[in-house]
Design a protein around this nucleic acid. Sequence first.
DNA 1: ATGATATTCGGAATGGTTCCTAATTAGTCT
DNA 2: AGACTAATTAGGAACCATTCCGAATATCAT
Lengths: 148, 148
Amino acid sequence: MYSSGTKDIERHIVAHLRQKRYKLTAQRLEIIRTLASERSHPGAMDIFRLVRQRLPKVSISTVYYTLEMLKKEGLIGELEFYDRDNRYDVNVSNHINLICKECGKIEDFTRELPFSSEAIEELTGFRPLGMRFEYYGYCKGCRDRRRR
Amino acid sequence: MYSSGTKDIERHIVAHLRQKRYKLTAQRLEIIRTLASERSHPGAMDIFRLVRQRLPKVSISTVYYTLEMLKKEGLIGELEFYDRDNRYDVNVSNHINLICKECGKIEDFTRELPFSSEAIEELTGFRPLGMRFEYYGYCKGCRDRRRR
DNA sequence: ATGATATTCGGAATGGTTCCTAATTAGTCT
DNA sequence: AGACTAATTAGGAACCATTCCGAATATCAT
């Protein structure tokens, strides 16, 4: 699945869009390629800058429009922040994100999660549809740099 | 602790501030009272509106300034959202928030959590300092309303 | 090739939060 | 009680990533 390579992810997304009769524009294909190869949870502006290297006339609106569409199709996940850029990820599985307060890097920590949606609903009546688990702290690199 | 009443929380916060030599203004005391009694994770604007009922001249800047100070003192927690008001909570323990997509209500779900900070650091080298666990879905009320 | 419709682009608008400055006030000291 | 001083307040401007808008363009089905 997500251990698969860049090309596989790209193909998977493109196939999905083709099947749903979305138009495969040059902008769209570049955005998808960028998402598939950048596993660092890029923000819209990161994607914009990367795509612009190949398509100098692309607009940031197009990036947002495409990300919104991919999100609606369930092909990417969005991590929303109020005080920094939102970040995007082709890993749409449930997992914990480890977010570095120093360098902003986001790592995935994929493990069995504590409470199933069913357990939550049984206990509280609340019906979970999505989740977001995050730890904030220092990544290995920044931790070691601070320690010195 | 957090099963304690409104008055206890209020007293606890005020005592902490007095000890740290913060000025106990009327605005500040009202904001604290509001936070202690509103357990619904109010936003800055909610607090502003409530406080203004008693202090009609209070400004929203003051609310933000005070919330920031209380946060720095570790007396309240802040839940930040990019697409809605940030929300504040006198419950500063680690817990899962259940956030209703329909009515915006936020409930606490306080249980043993899956991975300790120590376990995370051992496994990944990432040093967690804070966390944020959320489920998004429908609260009991909204779930039942939709079901009908 | 044509037509219908989705997509793109650029710029304007949005809105919760932060920033700025001058005026005010709580707490302290005498 | 009065004066001092540093923190706090009020009000408004600024911020800025994201969303919205309308007109131009390009994709795909036919």
